[in-house]
Each structure stands twice: as structure tokens, then as C-alpha cells.
């Protein structure tokens, strides 16, 4: 559960563009966006920095909102 897709689309970036900015493959970004892979803290920070936000905004969901925003 994360808002990576939402923030990426707001920037107008493709998955590949985001992947190149954080130094991973497009496949990894796709897996994270679809909740098929839990990234390391280091990668979470790089993603948050690249998308111009913080970890709380990108990964934290108040209770009950998980299903609505993912």
C-alpha cells in the first residue's frame, strides 16, 4: 500500500523515468506500485526524495484508508 503511482503520475513520469531516478529497474517500480514487493528503507527514502515528498505521505495510511487509496 503506497501512493507511488499517484505521485509519479502527478509528476508526469513513466515507471522507467522514476526507476532511472532512483537507480533501480522499471520492473522493481512496477512491483512496488502493485504491492508485490516491500522495498528496503533505503529505497523508500530515495523514492520519497525523487517524488518530492516524505515517507509518511508516501507510505503511511491512517487506519481504514488502505483499501481506498492503494
Amino acid at each position: 500500500m503506497n501512493r507511488i503511482r499517484q505521485f509519479r503520475q502527478a509528476q508526469g513520469w513513466s515507471q522507467l523515468a522514476l526507476a532511472q531516478r532512483v537507480g533501480v529497474t522499471r520492473q522493481t517500480v512496477n512491483m512496488i506500485e502493485n504491492n508485490n514487493y516491500n522495498p528496503s528503507l533505503d529505497l523508500c527514502i530515495r523514492l520519497a526524495q525523487a517524488l518530492g515528498t516524505d515517507l509518511n505521505t508516501l507510505f503511511w495510511f491512517p487506519e481504514g484508508l488502505e483499501g481506498e487509496e492503494s
Binding site: 537507480g23 533501480v24 529497474t25 520492473q27 522493481t28 512491483m31 512496488i32 514487493y37 522495498p39 528496503s40 529505497l43
Partner: peptide
């Protein structure tokens, strides 16, 4: 295993 997802898998 170029990045962390690939390495983990």
C-alpha cells in the same frame, strides 16, 4: 541481480 528486487527474488 542488478537491483534490490531482483537480488531478493
Amino acid at each position: 541481480g542488478r537491483d534490490e528486487y531482483q537480488k531478493a527474488e
